[in-house]
Design a protein around this nucleic acid. Sequence first.
RNA 1: GAUCGGUUAGCUCAGCUGGUAGAGCAACGCCCUUUUAAGGCGUGGGCCCUGGGUUCGAGCCCCAGACUGGUCACCA
Length: 504
Amino acid sequence: MEVHRSEQEIIRRENLNKIIAVGIDPFPAEMYPYNTTAKEIHANFDPAKKNFQEIIIAGRLMQKRIMGKASFAEILDTTGRIQIYITRDEICPTEDKTLYNDVFKKYLDIGDFIGIKGYAFVTQTGTLSIHVTELKVLSKSLRPLPIVKKDADGKVHDAFTDPEQRYRMRYVDLVVNPQVKEVFIKRSKILSSMRAFFDAKGWLEVETPVLQRIHGGAAARPFATHHNTLDMPIFLRIANELYLKRLIVGGFEGVYEIGKMFRNEGMDRTHNPEFTSMEIYVAYKDYIWMMEMVEQCLEYIALEVNGKTIVEYGGKVIDFAGPYPRMSMYESIEKYTGVNISEMEEEEMRKLCKKLHIEIDPTMGRGKLIDEIFGAKVEANLIQPTYITDYPLEMTPLAKKHRSKEGLVERFELFVNGKEIANAYSELNDPIDQRQRFEDQLTLAKRGDDEAMVLDEDFLKSLEFGMPPTSGLGIGMDRLTMLLTGQHSIQDVLFFPQMKAETK
RNA sequence: GAUCGGUUAGCUCAGCUGGUAGAGCAACGCCCUUUUAAGGCGUGGGCCCUGGGUUCGAGCCCCAGACUGGUCACCA
């Protein structure tokens, strides 16, 4: 197959060969013993103290400004950029000036990895720089990087902004757009601080099957695959809830899992086919206890990640400091529509939906209708973290019946910026009730509800052995990350969002 | 899934009522040499997303498709 290469790629390959021709390995195998970073030098260099006098650093060459026997350049390491100052006679102390005249000046390109030894100093114009005494080629770059530059008028050249290119070539995006790296560093911190919060409570991080015979625990279309040796259909999990509950049956006090779920559904700004969920189950607790736990946890994470509980998101200021207001689903609907639907029958509710211009179809039961009203009239108003509690029973087959309110379950969802962030129950641990709920789901499925849940016989068996009262919680980690990092697309908090194959 | 937009040089984008391509940055060459996007002069670089069609002639108009972004619908 003929490979088309651009002029710039061809030149870089020629430069590669020229480096080899002068006896330098452009891809050396041995480690490079750097002893500091650009960030450390910027933070701690003090000319009076004469520190940073024996520096070794490594990174990509990002700019070259050549002026005869002396040149300035910039290198980008894992922490940031720093200017370097190179003189010919210092890196080439003998008669042989090849390393400077040819290798540095001609054969090294933007994006190449180099290692340098030297000492820190401040130039006449006041720029902190490294005076180079030794230069080593660490790795050649064969493709041109788009180098973002800002000119004297503040005009930006070469910005690498096309979302498609950024997602498809995230490696380039990360090199060229430093703020992207910050988002992912924060994402990592969100995960680690959440783990720290749970671990401090003594709860156990566990792993449960990703490959499942029965895709239980949620209502969603799964990815289907096949196990060759077992000659058996297998699904990628859409949830791990039923497995985590089995572990509570087994006697753990608290278990949580942070992992990928897979749903074979549409993709948009807030949905990727694989996404990261956190689910936690704690024995002998209920959903009221869980609300306090979630407030503390999110406040803790916000502080760890951003140093404050306030986050600016799309011009709104959101405060994760608890406690969060609590409103029952009926109360919230009454607040935003003026109608009390708590005693309303299904038919009356259909009329209400028509009046409110909410589209419905005949397969929807009373619970689904309530959910539709809520989605259309309430959700978007819940900007600050708000708990909505006590959902209709038929929407929630895995939650315990409400202790005092007929027809409802002990469930809450946490809404932030008009979106659901967390979902929690007092878990249903009555195996007889649970079987009935699964059967009701089957009835709904026959009525045409394609989101109805699948019955898991082994899970029911585990409940029959006895599960303590338990509270469970799920959090969509990608969406939480979006909020805490100010990103508006899930693709901006995933390194490699799902993309169609390029056809070119 | 519906709808509107985008796709032209390595990157970001122009391209008029249709006359087979331009800029800035990047690259390459020369000049100058302690610069701050260093400067000056010059050069090269294009399957104009793909396939059809209309036309003497298509980057531009028409049809079909691909990828992609926004909005709406559904879901976490």
